[in-house]
Amino acid sequence: MLSHVFVGITAFEPAFDFYSDVMAVLGLDLKFADPDVPWAGWQQPSAERPFFLIGRAFNGEPATPGNGQMIALLAKSRATVDACHAAALAAGGTCEGPPGLRPRYHPDYYGAYFRDPDGNKLCVCCHEPV
């Protein structure tokens, strides 16, 4: 359904470090990184798409997070959700909701919420039962 997701950043190095840590926990591979543009992209090891991209806004204006916008990344297990949330916080992210069940979505929804160093809101979630 998706070709790619692009998240605006203001400073490449801290954003790249943050997302490199998060994507490693999720098992995603770095496809490319070019600090001169600046941008970087990750993908699943066995898939051509979708990409998860970070970069400076095309119009040259500062990147700003959208109100009500969030990107949810799929984790293979609840333990991966826990590890990803911990990696995000250790890499400079801020907690928007600790790992745990969210039965209001469905009985097996296990998720965690955080913001990147630029304030973009992300979720990492697992839909599988224990």
Rank of each mutant, 00 (worst) to 15 (best):
Leu101Trp: 04
Gly55Lys: 12
Gly100Asn: 07
Asp82Met: 08
Pro65His: 11
Cys95Gly: 10
Arg115Gly: 11
Ala87Phe: 04
Pro98Cys: 02
Glu96Thr: 05
Trp39Lys: 03
Cys84Ile: 06
Arg104Ser: 07
Lys76Ala: 14
Leu30Ile: 12
Leu101Thr: 00
Trp42Leu: 03
Pro50Lys: 07
Phe18Ser: 06
Gln43Trp: 01
Val130Phe: 13
Val25Met: 09
Ala87Cys: 03
Gln43Pro: 01
Thr80Ala: 14
Phe52Gln: 02
Glu96Tyr: 10
Glu128Val: 10
Ala57Gly: 06
Phe114Asn: 02
Val37Trp: 14
Ala63Glu: 10
Cys84Ser: 13
Ser3Glu: 14
Gly100Ile: 04
Ala79Arg: 14
Gly68Pro: 04
Pro45His: 09
Gly93His: 01
Arg49Glu: 13
Ala63Asn: 09
Gln44His: 11
Leu73Gly: 03
His85Cys: 01
Tyr110Phe: 11
Ala63Met: 09
Ala86Leu: 08
Glu96Lys: 12
Leu74Tyr: 14
Ser3Asp: 15
Val22Glu: 05
Val81Asp: 02
Val37Arg: 13
Ser3Leu: 14
Gly55Met: 13
Gln44Asp: 08
Ala47Gly: 00
Lys76Trp: 01
Ala79Asp: 15
Glu128His: 13
Ala40Gly: 00
Gln44Pro: 02
Asp82Gly: 14
Pro98His: 04
Tyr105Gly: 05
Val37Leu: 15
Ser20Leu: 01
Pro99Leu: 11
Glu13His: 11
Ala15Gln: 01
Gly93Lys: 04
Ile9Lys: 00
Gly93Leu: 02
Phe114Ser: 04
Tyr109His: 05
Ala72Ser: 15
